[in-house]
Design a protein around this nucleic acid. Structure first.
Lengths: 230, 230
DNA sequence: CAATCGTCAAGAGCAGTGCTCTCGATTTTT
DNA sequence: AAAAATCGAGAGCACTGCTCTTGACGATTG
């Protein structure tokens, strides 16, 4: 059923794909704000108004790119982590971290789109939430597995009881894990993306050169903090 | 010498200030991408081209706003931290962290300007680097003071020797502090801004409600990791 | 098979943007 | 008082997202 619909539908799907491809290339060179429907149309040899047959607005095109970005990042993390032995929790953590960083460095503008400052005037629709949790799902599973295997330590500081309801929001990601460990994991998660933000957004320029090594060391420190045993 | 120059220079200084004020207000409501020279001019009752007498381009206006933002954030952190007893290193750390977060939450668009994804096509000039280190200077001083006072522990994991040159870049901020502690402090610093990024950019929506408590707990955990005693 | 209906690209046009240039008027300097 | 520097206004250029209309093509049904 996927092979042949009418010729019209096939060319429509093809053109839609071509638009997103060109838009993604433009995004990579110009950034989100520089994404221009007219430029996409120009590159396709179409007139600008024709694009609106395929995407009702610039924001809709952006939304597609955002969802694609979430999926690309999530898939990269999933694939990388899948190569690790299940019991090697620390290796899984470090591998997943590096996968996030590698993808972000390779696709800085797409990363900025999904983890950077929100595009002004653009409100991400609900369609994105399904794709946007793929990466954190992997990270959560690593923590949950490590906890079950007794490969995590309990932090000395208990989580404040007021955070109980918020802790519950993450229990789906990390079942059976106690609150104190959840918040430590969230802190490590924050460190991961904080670092990648800093690196991708240029905050490390003229400050840190050997960024791969530094990143690995920092993620290792957070692994130590969680007591993540090999 | 500052009171009276020519009348022309005084009105010029006043108009320049009025432009930046209006631009800052517009930035707060519309975001960086929505900052429009024509709208500023309109609000001032001027014609758009007249703005260019004061700022040669939109990017130059943005640059002043960025420098102002760095200074405002830096000053907020400095003032908050200055109220703490010098010997209360942990309190100083937590206070400084909260100052960063409070300022960012109160001025989300200005924060996005200085710590978010870079504005497309805009390259921050060298003028900004003087103001942009004020906040991290405070944080570095806290770490350095704590280390001198013996209020920090040395992490079990040594920093990789390849990071020696990069460590040296931070020695000005944290003199006498050994490399392993420097990288732990940098990790904590990353956690701080990673968290604020997540919160300001909406990543915690529908996930964490009691964000002040959660933030304080996370920063406390990083204090624990550094062994930051009372 | 032929007529109709839906889809499509094209073009003109609107309101907005950053930015440049010229032209008088005003103010400062000589 | 004359010369020079500065300034606001206006027109205009190239660009943007987006809308509406027009005419042609393809698919579907009578």
């Amino acid at each position: 059923m996927t092979a042949s619909r009418t010729a019209r539908e096939r060319v429509r799907a093809e053109l839609t794909r071509e638009i997103t491809d060109i838009a993604r290339r433009q995004l990579a060179t110009e950034g989100a704000g520089g994404l221009s429907l007219r430029a996409v149309a120009r590159e396709m040899g179409m007139v600008s108004s024709a694009i609106y047959r395929y995407f009702p607005s610039r924001d809709d095109l952006l939304t597609t790119l955002i969802i694609d970005g979430y999926n690309a990042l999530g898939e990269a993390v999933e694939r990388a982590e899948a190569t690790c032995p299940r019991a090697a929790h620390r290796q899984r953590w470090l591998t997943a971290c590096h996968a996030v960083r590698d993808w972000a460095v390779a696709h800085p503008h797409e990363y900025a789109l999904i983890y950077g400052s929100p595009v002004p005037g653009y409100q991400a629709p609900q369609d994105t939430i399904a794709a946007r949790v793929r990466d954190v799902t992997v990270l959560g599973r690593i923590i949950a597995d490590a906890w079950r295997a007794g490969a995590l330590r309990t932090p000395e500081t208990e989580a404040p009881p007021e955070l109980g309801p918020d802790s519950a929001n993450f229990r789906a990601l990390m079942p059976e894990v106690p609150d104190s460990v959840i918040w430590l994991a969230l802190t490590a998660w924050t460190t991961l993306y904080g670092w990648v933000n800093f690196e991708v957004f240029g905050q490390f320029n003229n400050a840190i050169e050997d960024r791969g090594t530094a990143f690995g060391h920092a993620m290792g420190l957070m692994g130590d903090t969680m007591g993540l045993a090999q």
